[in-house]
């Protein structure tokens, strides 16, 4: 985490204060922020996934996350500069109730992670989904499901069709990936970028604004099984 922080140190020069149009009729100089919370059981690879996306590589060593860690990456989507904030949470149950709830505030999207080689982490998903419902007021927040560690093929305990069925039931797209596989960089990237595109097309600025259109609602994707690309 320490090393990660140095890598991730990006200029936090967002200018949400610059409201209104600039002189000359230019659009307001704001950088949109998408706040994404990453949850799931202990040791499913939440830290590795977020690190992989933000630093571009698999971390050498990760430790148990205590409380909440934060990582950030700036991306450009259709010419717009956007900051993706990933809030990486502790997996142990005791941290959830009193500790993590503060970090659900103003979240734009949720990433549920399970370990494909650990069926128990898959079976925990309903309780994570339930918890998420309790914390988030809006129902239309985009959620995705990520099965991690697909590189450990011989140890897979969660078959893709089972996970896909679960994802369909809960109207989430499913991604199977590996934060570790060196050839899989594009895939981890694609997962978060897909989410960012979705947020970009649907979400207003992070400053809470009253929903102005009822029809702006994240529709469940027509879900092609995102198979493992590793």
């Amino acid at each position: 985490m320490m090393a990660a922080a140095a890598d991730l140190e990006s200029s936090l020069e967002l200018s949400l204060t610059g409201s209104g149009a600039l002189p000359g009729g230019l659009p307001p100089a704001r950088s949109r922020i998408f706040k994404i919370i990453v949850i799931g059981d202990s040791n499913v690879g939440k830290t590795c996934l977020t690190y992989r996306f933000c630093a571009g590589r698999f971390p050498q060593r990760t430790e148990a996350t205590i409380g909440v860690d934060f990582r950030e990456r700036a991306v450009t989507i259709d010419g717009e500069r956007i900051k993706i904030q990933l809030w990486d949470t502790a997996g142990q149950e005791r941290f959830r109730k009193s500790m993590v709830q503060h970090y659900y505030r103003n979240v734009h999207a949720v990433v549920f992670v399970y370990d494909m080689t650990n069926i128990a982490s898959f079976h925990s998903l309903p309780s994570w989904i339930e918890e998420c419902k309790q914390h988030l007021l809006a129902n239309d927040i985009p959620r995705i499901l990520v099965g991690n560690k697909c590189d450990l093929r011989s140890a897979i305990q969660v078959p893709t069709d089972l996970a896909q069925k679960f994802a369909d039931t809960h109207s989430m797209p499913l991604f199977e990936t590996s934060a570790k596989n060196p050839n899989d960089n594009d895939h981890v990237e694609a997962i978060f970028m897909t989410l960012a595109h979705k947020l970009k097309s649907h979400k207003p600025l992070m400053l809470s604004q009253p929903p102005d259109h009822d029809e702006i609602r994240i529709k469940p994707e027509p879900k092609p099984a995102m198979t493992c690309w590793c």
Partner: peptide
């Protein structure tokens, strides 16, 4: 920057 993410990031 006076927002949760920046200050949390700095202090942590």
């Amino acid at each position: 920057e006076c927002d949760m993410a920046s200050v949390h990031h700095l202090l942590s």
